[in-house]
Write a protein that binds this DNA or RNA. Structure first.
Length: 569
DNA sequence: GCCGTTTTCGGCCCGACTGTTTTCAGTCG
């Protein structure tokens, strides 16, 4: 069982504790343990089963550990099952309505005896909610409206989609002469793979009531009410929170609203232990206000290394074995692998790809169309692949300063074999092995299937290792730790697929891979010219996982990459 | 529920906004 699966179950328990109005610190203890589990670089279930001593895990004491043991053995634990069977589902559902927390949900349930959102809606229409103590007409209207949001699901969206709205906002704010400074903070700035809302930190020109002016600009689709320092607006169906600060407060505010909550909780604890207090305005030492002129300064004052926004998730950033100053960046990428051409379902020809890559100053490309089992994607038959190989050889012969590696994205067949005979495969420089069908296998079966493919001497890269599609499909059930170990053992690089829907392997696993001495390759899985641009999302994720350039395969130059593919690097 | 070089008990991060209430609890980020 994966640590993330255990974490998910503990997180669910925390949610149930919260909705049952249990001690706030108890809830927090569970959430802290969840973060701790996500940051581990060993598999707890395996350690427990092997009988080895489990190292001390921060935030996991006697109680939570016994829950974990139960989860590992039975997939759940008794207290969770008990609380679930004693907690009406509607409480959890109501808690999703903005403005309805644990206490209100409980009160509504107890007094109005509603069992579904529909019944709550009806109770609002009948004016019964407004009659409850602590509620009034305004609360009722707000809840009625927010039920709609829950129904339409003010859902999270992909980082790339949020980016379009964010850039629209950026362009608009740049055009406002009464806005002196602004930045988009929140999970968007942290480059989380999905984003719920956008948080803006704004400094207006002196004397201007900037939020009021913005409200009058007619830019947002809707302005919800707000105060002098905060207004909430809606654009493209996304909630946008705008917060206004004095110039001297900008970096404290930017830092604060970049989050994450988990990062700040830990940071404030550290501040407190040093006799400091940190909030969104500045840092205090007793009553003395310490001016802050950059985010770097904040960490310096706290005696910490600077943590880039991507890493502020409360998971890896307080470890001392990660060098935040040496994270991968886009300029380190020397070449691009996993490109589809018009031989299968891509839109570009070989020459287009060559021209594009040269214009971006890449030194090499790796072509890998779909394999013959992928009928739906026009997978290449043996003779088509051999023809493509010949064409690439001809192009390479004419180009001295750029090189195309010949490859294929081979389906991993249900028995773990690749899609072509060795006679065909031996003509290639590399194989990306990927699962594209037959997702409904048991975990041991799927793991064995992939392990077999990884052990095939022709496999050089494992494509999108879990097959997840963000916001629409969970990955297939597979032992990711075992897969990582096997890849490392066989010198197979693990793809971090940069398509915004995939971003697979999940960045939370990257430290495991680093510790095992493995390599990641950032691949856009490009089917068109635009697809190449997705590389940036992969770089964001790699940074979130704390990856240095030397763990990323496509930072190698052409000569090194050739040696690697030949097994000589 | 976890933690500890002042502590094995008593802490545990901080502030804005809202709505309902006459001084504050609940929610959110």
């Amino acid at each position: 069982m994966e640590n993330a699966s255990i974490a998910k179950i503990l997180e669910e328990y925390a949610k149930y504790l919260e909705i049952n109005n249990e001690d706030f610190f108890r809830v927090r203890a569970y959430n802290a343990a969840v973060r701790s589990l996500l940051g581990l670089d060993f598999n707890i279930a395996e350690k427990l089963k092997s009988g080895e001593d489990l190292p001390k895990i921060k935030g996991v004491g006697k109680n939570i550990l016994s829950h974990i043991e139960e989860i590992v053995n039975f997939g759940t634990f008794q207290e969770l099952e008990d609380i679930k069977s004693n907690t009406p589902e509607i409480l959890i559902v109501m808690n999703k309505i903005p403005g309805v927390g644990a206490k209100k949900a409980y009160k509504i349930y107890k007094e109005l005896r509603v069992n579904s959102l529909g019944e709550l809606e009806y109770a609002c229409i009948e004016n019964r909610l407004a009659m409850l103590e602590g509620f009034g007409e305004k609360s009722q209207n707000k809840i009625l409206k927010n039920i709609e949001y829950v129904k339409l699901s003010m859902q999270r969206r992909l980082l790339a989609d949020a980016g379009e709205t964010a850039e629209k906002i950026r362009r608009f704010f740049e055009s406002l002469n009464y806005v002196e400074k602004f930045e988009i903070a929140g999970s968007y700035r942290r480059k989380l793979e999905t984003v719920k809302d956008l948080d803006l930190v704004i400094v207006g020109q002196e004397g201007s009531s900037v939020l009021e002016k913005i409200s009058n600009e007619n830019f947002f689709d809707e302005i919800k009410r707000g105060g002098e320092k905060l207004i909430s607006a809606v654009l493209d169906g996304m909630q946008v929170d705008l917060r206004c600060f004095d110039k001297s407060e900008f970096y404290s505010a930017l830092h604060h609203f970049t989050g994450s909550k988990a990062h700040h909780e830990q940071l404030r604890g550290i501040a407190k232990s040093k006799g400091l207090k940190i909030n969104e305005y500045c840092i205090f030492q007793g009553d003395k206000r310490i001016e802050v002129n950059s985010e770097e300064e904040i960490y310096k004052i706290l005696g910490l290394k600077y943590v880039p926004p991507e890493m502020r998730e409360g998971i890896f950033e307080f470890r001392d074995d990660i060098d935040f100053s040496n994270l991968i960046s886009e300029k380190d990428i020397k070449g691009i692998f996993h490109i589809h051409t018009n031989y299968s379902d891509g839109s570009m020809g070989l020459q287009d790809i060559l021209d594009y890559c040269k214009s971006k100053n890449y030194k090499y490309a790796g072509i890998s169309d779909h394999s013959r089992s992928a009928f739906y994607a026009g997978g290449l038959k043996d003779e088509e692949l051999l023809e493509q190989i010949e064409k690439i050889d001809a192009i390479n012969a004419e180009n001295s300063e750029f090189f195309i590696f010949k490859g294929i994205e081979s389906d991993i067949l249900p028995d773990g074999s690749l899609d072509y005979s060795d006679d065909v495969l031996q003509n290639l420089d590399f194989v990306i092995a990927s699962v594209h069908s037959g997702f409904n296998m048991t975990k041991p079966e799927m793991t064995e299937r992939i392990v077999r493919a990884v052990n095939n001497p022709y496999t050089k890269i494992l494509g999108h290792p879990t097959g997840r599609l963000l916001l629409s499909r969970e990955g297939y059930d597979v032992d990711v730790y075992e897969i990582i170990r096997q890849c490392c053992r066989n010198n197979v690089a693990i793809e971090l697929n940069c398509n915004p829907y995939r971003l697979d392997i999940d960045w939370r696993y990257l430290q495991v891979l680093v510790k095992e001495g493995g390599k990641v390759i950032l691949c856009p899985d490009a089917h068109s010219k635009k697809g190449f641009e997705d590389i940036k999302y992969g770089v964001f994720m790699a940074r979130k996982g704390g990856l240095p350039p030397d763990c990323v395969l496509n930072t190698l130059d052409k000569k090194e990459m050739t040696a690697y593919l030949l097994g000589n690097f």
